[in-house]
Amino acid sequence: MVAFIIRRFIQSLFVMFVVALVSFAMFQFIGDPVNQMVGIETSLAERAALRERLGLNDPIVVQFWHFIVNAVSGDFGISYQHKRPVADMLLERLPATLELSAVSALFSLLVGIPMGVYTGLNRDGFLAKVFLTVSLIGISLPTFLIGILLIFLFSVTLANAPAISVFGLFAIDPSVLQLPSFGRGTVVDLGGWRTGLLTADGLKALIMPSITLGLFQLTLIMRLVRSEMLEVLRTDYIKFARARGLANRAINFGHALKNTLVPVITITGLQIGSIIAFAIITETVFQWPGMGQMFLQAVQNVDIPIMAAYLMLIAFFFVVINLIVDMLYYVVDPRLRVDTGKATGHG
């Protein structure tokens, strides 16, 4: 076990190093940060001086070495555009991204699993067919399009919709259901962690972005649970359970669903990394003030320190999540333990 973890850990370090190297090499091709930083009137001499001050004239190996040494101590340098420490900026943006990712992961699990179970149990049901067809949209439409469609429906259309009259007595204004098309709403600062979960309009602002971000995972989980359910329901122990006269409810949820969850947990774990990483697009569409949005702006402005730090952070998330999933495997799946050690005696 210890040897396994150490081996994994060394592999992870290597992955981080490669990511750093690749991202650093990439930055050589995205243009000149100095051009973005100074006005067009700035003379060539001043530009050269600035380039020198930023260390852009050092050989690439030296720049990379400085970057690695500083990054290990948590110092990602100072943003060219904002002139603030990148580490601080990322930390400020982190809560927004994590809250959005967590809510969309929850959304995809809480909606995806029941839908998967339902479609698994009622293979030919009308509703199941509807779920499957709709879920195709979730997989095939690009995220930004889903986001824009939601904005169009729930922000623009509802805002301009005429009031609905009820028996000529009241008028209900559909615009009370209108959702904000951008931003996080009101946030509460809890000791540096700015949360939108504690205010009504903060929660309201979460709805559309988390659906947009979670739709793909929802589809994935639903289809995964469905196919696992179909498989498990065919197994002998389910037949045996039926023969014992157990209630359908107990069989479906107590026996079948439980056994489908191992791959679901694995996939969910791995998908959390992608949710965080792919939040870039959702954040841009909804002007969600998270890290992904900052990264995209940094790309446009050639703000190399932010780009480098963001890529490293995302790589770090992936590596850590993978590490945890690997270790969970070890804990959850008895077969892995069987192969390597003590249980061999039984054979």
């Binding site: 922000s155 623009v156 098309s181 995209l296």
Partner: peptide, 9 residues
């Protein structure tokens, strides 16, 4: 940042 969102708002 996104022009479509800006117009929608």
């Amino acid at each position: 940042a996104n022009p479509a969102t800006r117009v929608a708002a």
